[in-house]
């Protein structure tokens, strides 16, 4: 049976990398805070002298957007758009380095062309549980986005790479990942008290994190959130992690020169201060490159007929 347009209203399927990744899945990780293991002692707030940023300094981020759900009567497929991009700081200037945009059809077996839009097939791994089809499709889209991000990040040579979300990719040079929301708890209760006394520009000592065979060093740092003292101290927290290799201690100190300077202002950004300035700019750019949601929806609606014709019997 042919694929038919099932729904175009997918606003709830939209999300950005950081939010999705630092959400629920992280909480299920390998038994924290029980296996908490500090890398630095004593357990108290730490400061560091300002250091110049390393160059080139890359920021990589991605976006995903579900654009339509198709149905052939038995199965569902999700048409979506994923984008990843990098900005680079070099010679005192932050500029857009690269963006990549792909359209994918999660659950499709063949490429689908609708007007000028081409959706590449991305088959689902194994049959999803019936109740969770949409979640599985969404997960597929997220994977496509992560893949695109990692591919783009892998091509960046030298310097320091900063990624939105946990560090997953293996990279030759140093890499920092930052997590904006804190559903998962890493600290035992007696150590957590330090978090609420951190002042802007201070961090906790490093502690060890193990994830899927990866050894990481992580720490919390406090971003400035003007006006100080109005919001709860936790709202300015950022968790940063880096692979446990090389001089990760120096990276922890560098992070105090880096992240507070790039914190966004609450007047301008509802996700302040954790949504970093260059990343905010990059995200705006990415959504521009993904095209207007309305225009895409109209193209899809207009080409419904060719949908069934092309995929006749598919």
């Amino acid at each position: 049976m042919a694929w038919r347009l099932y729904s175009l209203d997918l606003s709830r399927l939209e999300g950005t990398a950081g939010e999705v990744l630092s959400g629920a899945p992280e909480g299920a990780e390998e038994g924290y805070p029980a296996s908490f293991q500090p890398l630095e002692e004593p357990w108290e707030a730490r400061r560091a002298d300002p250091v110049p940023w390393p160059e080139p300094l890359y920021f990589v981020d991605g976006r995903e957007r579900g654009e339509a759900v198709l149905s052939d009567g038995r199965r569902l497929a999700l048409l979506g758009c994923v984008a990843a991009g990098a900005v680079v700081y070099q010679q005192g200037n932050m500029r857009l380095l690269e963006t990549r945009v792909r359209r994918v059809g999660v659950g499709l077996e063949e490429a689908l062309r609708l007007g000028e839009l081409v959706y590449e097939p991305l088959p689902l791994e194994g049959p999803p549980s019936p109740g969770d089809v949409l979640t599985a499709l969404q997960e597929g889209l997220r994977k496509a986005r992560t893949l695109l991000e990692e591919k783009l990040a892998g091509a960046l040579a030298g310097g320091l790479l900063v990624v939105d979300g946990p560090v997953r990719l293996r990279r030759q040079g140093p890499v920092l990942g930052y997590i904006k929301t804190h559903w998962a708890r890493y600290l035992p209760e007696d150590r957590e008290a330090l978090l609420s006394t951190l002042k802007p520009g201070e961090r906790t000592p490093m502690f060890r994190v193990r994830r899927k065979g990866q050894e990481l060093a992580s720490w919390y740092l406090r971003l400035p959130l003007p006006p100080e003292g109005v919001r709860p101290p936790e709202s300015g927290l950022l968790r940063v992690e880096t692979p446990l290799q090389g001089d990760f201690g120096a990276l922890a100190d560098l992070s105090l020169s880096l992240f507070p300077a790039l914190a966004s202002h609450p007047v301008k950004d509802p996700r302040a201060p954790q949504n970093l300035l260059p990343v905010g700019g990059l995200e705006r750019e990415l959504s521009r490159r993904m095209g207007s949601r309305e225009v895409v929806a109209r193209i899809l609606a207009r080409h419904q007929d060719s949908l069934s014709a092309d995929q006749g019997g598919g």
Partner: peptide, 20 residues
């Protein structure tokens, strides 16, 4: 382009945001 705040220009000059 795309910047909604006049003060974004200061961030651009400091090299904190990419601008078009």
């Amino acid at each position: 382009e795309g910047e909604s705040f006049d003060t974004d220009v200061f961030l651009a000059v400091q090299g904190k945001i990419p601008v078009s």
